[in-house]
């Protein structure tokens, strides 16, 4: 598969491949609370079970922590990003997740994290939980709802902005052993978390179950990416050379293509720094031949920049 001249960094081969990503719709919600612990409780719950739009409705994750001077209300906070295939689906997911996971969580408040974009309800409908006792407040041109709850008021901004975004950026890490692959991914995720406007929606940011389109079972539209599964190397058209013992993937959703490439670069560079001596042999990316997604992230171009 590597074509043309080889690109080897610190002993790690970088395939001349590209990650194929799709247009999505996204928003950011800022959750604040009395302290970071409770902001995280809300944030992790609200972004839970949101690894893939295929079955979760949206992809979501914590983007980063916010210091008190970064939040609208001067309290500690967490920014989360939510991605879906359509604005309508995203709106549904926001309402459910904010309603079940933030409204319910002691001391929290929720604010729009994206300026501009198409407004989509954040507290606009949740306010009716207030049964007529809710009150609206406009501050500096933005509308908030104050919903009376048992610990005080749930303060929630009326709407948040939905913007076009990019989902499905990815790269695959091919290592000699499973612990080495995971260590490399952990290093990548640590670096990638510093990049704004992206999330890596899978558990810990890492996915081991890369998939291919189609299945021998007609009911399933996708199935395990057997070409990258080391344990069946002998009986399938494997893409793994003999020294590869484990493959893991990192999937990135970002607000813009540049954000996705920045995250990919930060992640791959972190892995490359570990190098072949730590068992990392090759980096590649997943695509569908360039026919399905309109965003193509060529690994070598990203690293060359």
């Amino acid at each position: 598969m590597p074509a043309g001249h080889a690109m080897i960094l610190n002993g790690v081969a970088i395939d001349d491949e590209f990650a194929e990503a799709f247009g999505m719709k996204a928003t950011r919600v800022i959750i604040t609370a009395q302290d970071l612990t409770w902001a995280y409780h809300a944030a992790t719950t609200a972004t839970g079970f949101a690894t893939s739009v295929i079955a979760c409705g949206c992809e979501a994750g914590v983007e980063r922590e916010l210091s008190p001077d970064e939040t609208p209300d001067g309290r500690p906070g967490v920014a989360i990003l939510l991605f879906a295939m359509s604005g309508k689906e995203l709106a549904k997911q926001i309402e459910r997740r904010v309603g079940q996971c933030i409204l319910t969580c002691p001391t929290t408040a929720a604010y729009a994290g994206v300026a501009g974009g198409e407004p989509v309800a954040l507290g606009k409908n949740l306010r009716f939980f207030g049964d007529g006792f809710q009150a609206s407040k406009q501050v500096a041109g933005r509308r908030y709802w104050r919903v009376p709850v048992m610990d005080g008021e749930f303060l929630v901004e009326e709407s948040t902005g939905v913007v076009p975004a990019v989902g499905g950026g990815n790269f695959l890490v091919l290592a000699e052993t499973q612990p080495q692959a995971l260590a490399a991914c952990e290093a990548a995720i640590t670096a990638m978390r510093l990049v704004p406007n992206v999330i890596m929606p899978f558990p810990g940011g890492v996915v081991r179950s890369g998939s291919k389109v189609g299945s021998r079972y007609t009911a399933l539209s996708a199935s395990t990416n057997d070409a990258f599964c080391p344990t069946i190397r002998g009986i399938t058209r494997s893409q793994l050379s003999p020294e590869i013992g484990a493959v893991m993937e990192i999937v990135i959703d970002g607000l813009a293509a540049d954000d996705v490439s920045a995250a990919m670069r930060a992640g791959i560079e972190a892995i490359v720094r570990l190098g072949a001596t730590r068992g990392i042999r090759r980096i590649t990316a997943g695509n569908y031949g360039g026919k399905l997604g309109k965003f193509h992230f060529r690994l070598r171009e990203i690293l060359a920049r």
Binding site: G74, R75, V139, A140, Y144, L155
Partner: peptide
């Protein structure tokens, strides 16, 4: 008697 989060928004504005 309450510390209303809403007042923090006003203070900032």
């Amino acid at each position: 008697r309450f510390p209303l989060t809403m007042l923090a928004l006003l203070a900032r504005a």
